[in-house]
Amino acid sequence: MIMQPTFRQPVPGDAAYCFNIETSAYEGDEAATLEKIATRIAEYPEGFLILEAEGRIAGFINSGCAFDVVMSDEEFKELIGHDPAAANVVIMSVVVDPAEQGKGYSKLLMTEFIRRMTEMGKKTIHLMCRDHHVALYEKMGYRYIKPSASDHGGKPWHEMMMDL
Rank of each mutant, 00 (worst) to 15 (best):
I2W: 09
Q4N: 15
P5L: 13
R8F: 09
Q9T: 15
V11F: 09
V11P: 04
V11Y: 09
D14K: 12
A15L: 05
A15F: 08
A16G: 06
A16Y: 13
A16W: 12
A16V: 05
Y17C: 10
Y17G: 05
Y17D: 08
C18K: 08
C18V: 09
F19G: 01
I21C: 05
I21K: 03
T23K: 15
T23W: 04
S24C: 10
E27F: 03
D29N: 07
E30Q: 13
A31H: 12
L34S: 05
E35Y: 01
K36M: 11
I37K: 00
A38K: 03
A38P: 00
A38T: 00
T39I: 01
R40F: 00
I41S: 03
I41L: 01
G47M: 01
L49N: 12
L49A: 09
I50Y: 06
I50E: 01
E52Q: 02
E52N: 03
E52Y: 08
A53I: 07
A53L: 09
E54V: 10
R56M: 12
R56P: 07
I57C: 09
G59N: 00
F60N: 03
F60P: 06
I61N: 04
I61H: 10
S63G: 01
S63M: 01
C65Y: 01
C65M: 04
F67D: 13
F67P: 02
D68G: 06
D68I: 12
M71E: 14
D73R: 08
E74T: 14
E75G: 02
E75M: 02
K77T: 07
K77R: 15
E78Q: 10
E78W: 00
I80F: 00
D83L: 04
D83G: 02
P84F: 05
P84I: 10
A85I: 01
A86N: 04
A87K: 12
A87S: 13
V89H: 11
V89R: 10
V94I: 15
V95L: 06
V96P: 03
D97V: 05
P98Q: 09
P98E: 08
A99L: 13
K103P: 06
S106Q: 11
S106N: 04
L108R: 10
M110G: 07
M110F: 14
F113M: 04
F113Q: 08
F113C: 05
T118P: 03
M120R: 08
G121T: 02
G121P: 00
K122W: 02
K122L: 01
T124N: 11
T124P: 08
I125M: 04
L127H: 11
L127G: 05
L127Q: 01
M128T: 13
C129N: 03
H132M: 08
H133F: 11
H133A: 15
A135R: 12
A135Q: 14
L136D: 12
L136N: 11
Y137T: 09
E138V: 09
K139E: 15
Y142H: 13
R143P: 05
Y144G: 06
I145W: 11
I145S: 09
I145L: 14
I145N: 07
I145Y: 11
P147E: 15
A149V: 09
D151A: 08
H152Q: 08
H152E: 03
G154I: 00
W157I: 12
E159V: 14
M160R: 09
M160I: 06
D163I: 15
